[in-house]
Computed example of a mutant assay.
Amino acid sequence: MSQDFSGQVAFITGGSDGIGRATAELLARRGATVIVCARGEEKLEATRAAIEAAGGKVEAHQLDVTDSDAFATLISDVAKRHGRLDMMVNNAMSVHYAPISKLKLGHWRKDFAVNADAVFVGTKAAMEVMTAAGKGSIVNISSTTAIRAAPFMSSYSASKAALIQFTAVAAMEAARSGVRINAIVPGQVQTAANEDFSAKAPEVASKTTEAIPMGRGGQPHELAESILFMLSDAASYITGVALPVDGGKSAQLYLPS
């Protein structure tokens, strides 16, 4: 998919690392002005510098998306300054890994604050701008753990499942306004965090990868391509969809050997 996004404006949360950074870099290469926000200043600055060094147009904002007022205000300000907001990618995430017996309510609430509440805030603010313009595309990033159960991931899984259903409802509300809203459902992606886990637990990582039908984890740029497809005019008749990008994992029927 090689659509030219020149003149368009895209806002990406969690845009300083992994899938978010890959998406920001790809959109910038295709001509879009990219606004990235994230909590970590160092990674955010590295992303901004890399995009500018490649000739892209980028703004970087240090922001915690759980600060709902600041988040919504930034989206509104970006749209006013640029005169438009064409694309929104809600990618920021929070994950706590623990059995339910040891998971604290604060951990549960934190995952929902980032993975569901912030997606609501970001989608609502973007919808307001896009509905007024009569066009726009929003992509929310979920997880295969939202559609398949994995032990010790209750808060992450439940919040990402809420994201999928919210996306579908928002898509129905926005459909007659020229605004499309979809979700991408990644499986295992070889981000820095996953590579770090693989180094610490190579046996577990190897078995997890082997259990994927394609026999490997996805690369951030592969997820970015899927996100750009959903954002692009090539997906002009697609809305309310949760698209698995997981090497076949969510379609797999487990058969014990």
Rank of each mutant, 00 (worst) to 15 (best):
Y254M: 05
V179C: 07
S6A: 10
L231Q: 06
G18M: 01
K160L: 07
D17W: 00
L255I: 14
R29Q: 15
A149G: 05
G31R: 09
R84I: 12
V121M: 04
F112T: 11
M130S: 09
I184P: 06
S143H: 03
D77A: 15
M93L: 06
L74H: 10
T239G: 07
Y97V: 11
V169W: 02
E203Y: 05
G56V: 02
R109T: 12
R148S: 01
R216D: 07
E203F: 00
L228M: 05
Q165H: 15
M127Q: 13
A158F: 02
R29N: 14
R29F: 11
H82C: 15
A32G: 08
T123K: 05
V189D: 11
A171H: 08
T13R: 07
C37I: 12
A24Y: 08
N140V: 13
T131C: 14
L63F: 02
A162N: 07
G240Q: 04
E25V: 14
N90G: 11
T209I: 05
A10S: 06
T208R: 02
V185Q: 09
I184N: 08
G31A: 10
G136L: 12
I100Y: 01
V58E: 09
A146D: 09
A126P: 02
A22M: 08
T208F: 00
L163T: 08
A162Y: 05
S206E: 14
T23G: 02
K104Q: 14
G136Y: 13
H96I: 05
V189K: 03
A224N: 00
F112Q: 10
S2T: 12
M153E: 13
G122Y: 06
A10F: 01
Y156M: 02
F152G: 06
G122M: 10
L44G: 15
G40H: 12
G247E: 00
T145L: 13
S142N: 10
Q252T: 00
I75N: 07
A70W: 03
I141F: 04
Q188G: 12
N91M: 05
A28T: 08
L163K: 03
I100E: 00
K200V: 05
E45K: 15
G106T: 12
A79M: 12
L163R: 09
A126F: 03
R48C: 10
P220D: 06
T167F: 03
A242V: 09
A46S: 13
S68C: 09
T131I: 14
S155C: 04
G15Q: 00
A149D: 13
A170K: 01
L44F: 01
I164A: 03
N115G: 04
S157A: 15
A38E: 13
T73E: 14
A28P: 10
H221L: 04
I75Q: 05
S101N: 07
M230R: 10
G217Y: 06
S2V: 14
Q190P: 04
N182K: 07
G56K: 02
T208P: 00
Y97K: 04
I35N: 04
E41L: 14
G15S: 04
G83E: 11
M130I: 09
A234H: 11
Q219S: 01
Y97T: 10
T73Q: 12
R109H: 13
G136S: 07
A158T: 13
D4R: 09
A161S: 12
P213N: 07
R21Q: 12
V241N: 01
V78F: 11
A175G: 03
E59P: 00
A175K: 15
K110P: 06
